[in-house]
Design a protein around this nucleic acid. Structure first.
Lengths: 230, 230
DNA sequence: ATGGTCAACTTGTCCGATAAGCTGATGATA
DNA sequence: TATCATCAGCTTATCGGACAAGTTGACCAT
């Protein structure tokens, strides 16, 4: 894993000229590991669609548009700057998806789900001092709503959203004021779901996500400024 | 890869009781391969979030909601029945995403992109007899539009959409009549883009995708009926 | 100029051995 | 009897050396 992380960072930084990735032997020499470890590293990178490997041929780096950016592993290896960008890009998709999903959920929620959502809101309002734990419950809340779609691909997207969030928040801490407004948003979504009001749920979710988007954009600006100062 | 495919199919079929995946030794004995190959297999499954592996502990199967359903590898290993379901689930998301993306593209397309789209339409109308090649160009067309969003996560989703399509179409062939109507849809989208008309592009894309959705649903019903007869 | 042959490089697989982490059972102590 | 420390056994992590098999490019004969 460590070798894979270093190697990925080297590839991302553009250190390796077009396509030609290091061979098994190169890796084992550069990192001082056996060929077995080098091979397993390449197997990992291959299954994340980062490289292409075939017998006899040299390993080649694959086009980045096809990399598995939703993989927690890859997310962990990417520099924080790119993680921030990915978080914004994911957010762009969530703005398009989640309002509709909330509307769908409003039509089909069970009392069981509503209980869990209520419970989540209670825990969040108690955790406003602890951004780490808050974010965890926050994601649970959104995932609970998305579960209504019964969509495995969406599940996967939301799962990696959590990892993108934690990876990004490892650096820039959340502002506590933002959390309080998020709790208000969540309550509004919850109440629309209780009322089985699709249009209301859609509107509430849209508002919540656009709030979140502006926060992300501000944060990105801050980190960009910080990078410029550096 | 072969071992990983077999092992995944065994896990999917529910052969393995809750969580307890086979160990390296189990795999090497069951498939008649060395422990090295068993290890590399597990490394692959781990990087697709199918299993969890840690030193000393047994390998455990991870919750399916977190599997990397967008990975071409995993898609290839899944039974066709599940691939069909995933294709529908992905389509559900595309219906929500692509109309908005088409609208965004209408506001920002370059003449260069428009040329490529035009070229794609021409090639598609010439390829209506060859569903394989048609599907390829079809995906290129959609990807070209999605590229306007400049969104890596979306790129990844569209990339794996292609693989889901080919994996599904390996079994059930496309109806030629459907292709002709798709070409008409594509032309309509293209013309809205040429006119830089976001609302028109959104509407055209929505129409196209809902056509596609009903086709997919019919196909799923057919395969379900076929399975029942079997 | 063309085409076939072969050597060098690269990935695929195997075996045997050792290190290191975890789990559960076993036995000593209070 | 209850609690806790210890340890054996299982499991994963890594190493080295060896051979098989595919690809590439250079070299040579036609």
């Amino acid at each position: 894993m460590q070798v894979a992380a270093h190697l990925t960072r080297r590839i991302v930084s553009g250190d390796i000229e077009d396509g030609r990735a290091p061979s098994e032997l190169d890796i084992s020499q550069e990192f001082g590991v056996s060929r077995v470890v080098a091979r397993e590293t390449l197997k990992i990178l291959a299954s994340l669609d980062i490289v292409d490997v075939a017998q006899g041929r040299r390993v080649v780096v694959r086009p980045r548009a096809e990399w598995d950016y939703l993989s927690p592993l890859l997310i962990e290896w990417l520099p924080t700057e790119i993680v921030g960008e990915l978080l914004q890009e994911l957010d762009q998709l969530r703005v398009l998806l989640e309002p509709e999903l909330a509307a769908m959920a409003a039509a089909s929620v069970t009392d069981d789900t509503l209980d869990r959502l209520r419970d989540g809101i209670d825990r969040m309002s108690a955790l406003e001092a602890d951004p780490d734990a808050y974010l965890e419950v926050d994601h649970e809340f959104h995932m609970e709503i998305c579960r209504a779609a019964n969509n495995r691909i969406l599940d996967r997207i939301m799962y990696s959203a959590r990892w993108l969030g934690t990876a990004s928040r490892r650096i820039t801490n959340e502002a506590p004021a933002a959390l309080r407004s998020a709790t208000a948003d969540h309550t509004e979504i919850y109440e629309a779901l209780v009322a089985r009001d699709p249009a209301g749920a859609r509107a509430a979710m849209r508002k919540h996500l656009s709030n979140n988007s502006t926060l992300l954009a501000e944060k990105a600006q801050q980190t960009k400024r910080a990078a410029r100062r550096r």
